[in-house]
Design a protein around this nucleic acid. Structure first.
Lengths: 189, 189
DNA sequence: CTTAGCAGTTTTGATACGAAACTACAAAAC
DNA sequence: GTTTTGTAGTTTCGTATCAAAACTGCTAAG
């Protein structure tokens, strides 16, 4: 019963944010999905700034994402950099104007306006519950979690900093606050 | 800061539900937005089962909603009944197969699968917080609330039942559990 | 009885999206 | 070292979503 209502409220908040976003982001000539892609690229780490990662994060096919990326590149909101090692891979880096748009458009004006009327401790509680629900859904549906290295089972705290056992590379204190497409929680099942 | 993360989690849950929904509801030959419209019609009261109300609920224009309704009518998932008093208005009623599809598709399989792994008291807490956030957003953005008569300032508890001061009509115990496009919370500001 | 306003429809055009075929590169198989 | 299999990304095409705006028909106010 609760899940039914949770679903309903999620849809309604989503509709509110998206339909408002279509109107306001129309000034930027960008669609909601473009803002999502830009936001992802602003918080992902260096292993996760590829087209494939974006498409997995957004739940789209590669073809669709390819169109999205092409448009964002034409608008000079991101640049493509070929991977020095693997010739198939290109990394997507936000430009200064790309970062500016992320700062402008996140969070949505709808939520920003509600922020001051919504008690801070309730905001934190809601955030934690949503995070929990998202990760439960992802686990059940065998989806990638896209969480920060800090909570990843491949990440190892060492004397001088951090180390990723998967990529066999050291991670900086900033690195472990970014989200990664290879992220896996420590298995508790 | 919390709002930023809340927005992010809302989007990701939305994407998860929608991209999964596109796959499963493809079996029904319906799009996510159609399921939303059907669900709304299953929980709205007799003042709110019109095209205009649906379009306000979904945040679409009337033209877009008109297309949605036309398709649902062709699939025999709802029927149109002209209003006996106002010749401009038509009421939208779900058919038996329409109701069946609502029961099948709500809540999303993604959430249903997570239900058993997500503690019940946390479900209730999350539901209440989402409701709170939604209503705060709607208030701030001057949107209709679409909540149940039970919480409406126009509704009056009387000896034999309930009474709506706006429509000047009595409401049954079942009526006050349905959502209404004219709903307004008692003003506390 | 005229005018303003509302419920709903139709048409048009832009954009989003998935499916599938395709290119180019990489790594494993043999 | 050549073939096979797999992966990153692109292109094309058909379908669906959506808003904008012009439209019909009804209602209600002046």
């Amino acid at each position: 019963m609760s899940m039914l209502e949770i679903h309903q409220f999620l849809e309604r908040l989503g509709n509110l944010i998206r339909s408002q976003g279509r109107r306001t982001s129309a000034g930027l000539d960008l669609q909601p999905v473009h803002l999502n892609a830009l936001y992802y690229l602003s918080i992902c780490n260096r292993y996760s700034d590829t087209l494939l990662a974006v498409s997995e994060y957004l739940g789209q096919t590669r073809g669709t994402t390819s169109q999205t990326i092409k448009l964002l590149e034409q608008r000079r909101l991101l640049t493509k950099k070929p991977d020095p090692v693997d010739g198939r891979v290109t990394h997507l880096k936000l430009t200064a104007s790309g970062r500016k748009i992320v700062l402008q458009s996140w969070p949505s004006p709808v939520l920003k306006a509600a922020e001051s009327l919504f008690p801070v401790d309730q905001q934190d509680a809601l955030r934690d519950q949503l995070k929990q629900l998202l990760h439960t859904c992802q686990k059940v549906n065998d989806q990638k979690t896209f969480a920060i290295c800090h909570s990843c089972r491949h990440n190892e705290k060492q004397a001088g900093g951090y180390f990723c056992r998967l990529t066999q590379e050291p991670l900086s204190p900033e690195d472990v606050t970014l989200i990664c497409r290879e992220h896996e929680f420590p298995q508790s099942a």
